[in-house]
Simulated assay, not measured.
Amino acid sequence: MKKLFRKHKKRKIIAIVVLLVVLLIGGIYGSILWKFYGGSVGVVSKDKVDTKSKKVKIAKEERKDEDVFNVLLVGTDSRDPDADRGRSDSMMMVSFNKKEGKSTVISFLRDSLVNIDGHGQSRLGHTYAYGGVGLTINTLNETYDLDIQNYITISFDDLVNVIDEIGGVTIYISEEEAEYYRQNGMPDIQAGDVTLTGSQALAHARNRTLGSDFERTRRQRSVMYGIYRKIIENKDPAALLPLINYAVNHVKTNMSVTEMYSMAKEVLAIDNLKMQQACVPQDGTYTNVVYENMQVLEIDFDANKQKIKELLY
């Protein structure tokens, strides 16, 4: 592998960053993280899964389509003093369809009422606290008929340094959002396309005051797209090295370096990668209800499974 990376140094740097940052949007966020590989949550047969474990194993699923690769990106809220065992602040599935030349990012709302194996019905967002990323993946696979086997976890606070490393990100800010930010510590923010620092982008992604949770997940995806656009603007390997080095120490994944390098080459082989995004549940497929004193979303799962299938395949 060392000889391979030396031979393709320039291409490797661009490929890994464009894959592992761009693939927050167009593939997979990560980097050469082999040092995390040995201790990652493993994939085992379903009969070997202990649903009561603090670190539930990922249940093996057969690929739905050999041309489609799905990865779960979990953003943890680092304000939680026990973030690794705390709550997942966002859950996005990033999908790459090689045959169709397209990438899809789907946000799953935390307040979705789902059946969690071994824990009964509860909010989807509770799966991470109950059994880690493995239980989250297993629940999503069972609920929406998916085949996720890989994951990347990152603290949103870690994104601050990533964004600052690339010189900020440009994001569209609505007039309502701009007015709110001007009153809450960002006096110079105006509506329109605005370049945000890492801390400003984090505040935007965490904004729970304006709109519903649907709006919050839209803002999170907009930050990811901002990173994507900035990386595409600057493919200078020397400029990207600090970003890679930072990511290596702040992102966890169960993907090997060879898997990531292979995926990077496939993504970069596509001249015009089509990108799309969505939120689950879709409009008109859920009802706001109270369940065991929790405000949750009661979902039409069949309708959402059909929509996901249309997006991915």
Rank of each mutant, 00 (worst) to 15 (best):
G211W: 04
S112L: 08
T170I: 11
K60T: 04
I166V: 13
E215H: 12
E233R: 14
K307D: 04
V49Y: 00
D47G: 04
A239N: 12
G134W: 02
I58Y: 02
V267P: 00
N70K: 14
N304W: 11
V267Y: 03
K48G: 05
T209R: 13
K9Y: 13
L73Y: 07
K35D: 15
V257R: 00
L23W: 09
S88W: 01
S88I: 04
R182T: 10
I299E: 06
L23T: 12
T76W: 05
R110A: 08
G131C: 03
L297H: 03
P281Y: 00
D50E: 08
R182G: 10
G75C: 10
T51I: 11
V223A: 12
S199E: 15
D65E: 13
K252D: 14
K48E: 15
K12V: 13
R208F: 01
E266C: 00
T170A: 13
P81W: 04
S103L: 08
E61R: 15
E61V: 14
V22I: 11
S88T: 06
N138P: 08
I166K: 02
M93E: 06
G198I: 05
I171T: 07
D302H: 00
G38N: 14
P237F: 02
M255R: 06
V56P: 06
N293G: 05
R216F: 10
V21C: 08
R11E: 12
F156E: 09
A59G: 15
A303K: 14
D89F: 01
I173D: 08
I244C: 09
G118M: 06
